[in-house]
Amino acid sequence: GATAVSEWTEYKTADGKTLYYNNRTLESTWEKPQELK
């Protein structure tokens, strides 16, 4: 079967924080998503 690919993209901001963006739900979060833990 196909492996579930994470929908989350990780961005590094200018101040060194990490922003997570979900390509499916168009949601963005500063918290690390469950799927990435």
Rank of each mutant, 00 (worst) to 15 (best):
T18E: 03
Y21M: 07
T9D: 04
L19G: 08
A4L: 13
V5S: 13
P33K: 02
E27N: 04
G16F: 00
E31H: 08
S6H: 10
Q34G: 10
W8T: 01
K37H: 12
A14D: 10
T25Y: 03
T3Q: 11
T13A: 08
T13E: 04
K17Y: 08
T29W: 04
T13P: 00
Y21F: 15
N22E: 02
Y21S: 03
Y20I: 00
L19D: 03
T9F: 08
K37Q: 14
T13M: 14
R24S: 15
E35M: 06
E10D: 02
W30P: 06
D15W: 04
A14S: 11
R24F: 15
R24T: 15
A4M: 13
W30Y: 15
E35G: 09
K12A: 08
G1H: 13
E31M: 07
P33E: 02
L19R: 08
E10V: 11
S6G: 11
P33N: 01
T25V: 02
G1E: 14
P33M: 01
E27C: 00
V5H: 12
K32T: 09
E27I: 07
K12F: 09
T25K: 00
S28F: 15
L26G: 15
K32M: 13
Y20T: 00
L26R: 08
E35K: 04
N23Q: 08
N23S: 06
Y11W: 09
N22K: 00
G16T: 00
T13I: 05
L36D: 07
E27P: 00
G16D: 03
D15I: 03
G16K: 01
L19A: 09
N23I: 09
Y11E: 04
S28T: 15
N23T: 11
K17G: 06
K32Y: 05
K37R: 12
T18R: 03
W30K: 06
T3E: 11
T18I: 14
W8E: 01
T9P: 00
Y21L: 09
T3A: 14
A14F: 07
T18F: 05
L36Q: 04
S28G: 05
K37W: 14
N23Y: 08
T3G: 13
T13L: 11
T29S: 10
K37T: 13
K12S: 07
T13D: 09
A4Y: 10
E35R: 02
K37S: 14
V5P: 14
P33D: 02
E10M: 10
V5W: 14
K32G: 02
Q34S: 12
A2H: 13
R24M: 15
P33A: 01
Q34V: 12
K37V: 14
L36M: 09
L26I: 01
T9A: 08
N22I: 00
T25E: 02
K17A: 06
K12H: 12
D15M: 04
K17R: 15
S6W: 10
K37F: 12
N23L: 06
N23R: 06
T25A: 01
A2N: 13
L26N: 15
Q34L: 12
G1D: 12
T3W: 11
L26P: 03
L36N: 06
K32D: 04
E27F: 04
E10F: 07
E27Y: 04
D15N: 09
K12N: 09
E31D: 10
N22M: 00
T13R: 04
E27Q: 09
D15V: 02
T29Q: 10
Q34R: 08
N23V: 09
W8A: 00
K17S: 07
E7N: 05
N22A: 00
E7L: 06
L19I: 14
E27M: 08
T29Y: 07
K17I: 06
S28D: 03
T25H: 02
E35L: 08
E27L: 05
W30H: 11
K17V: 07
S28L: 15
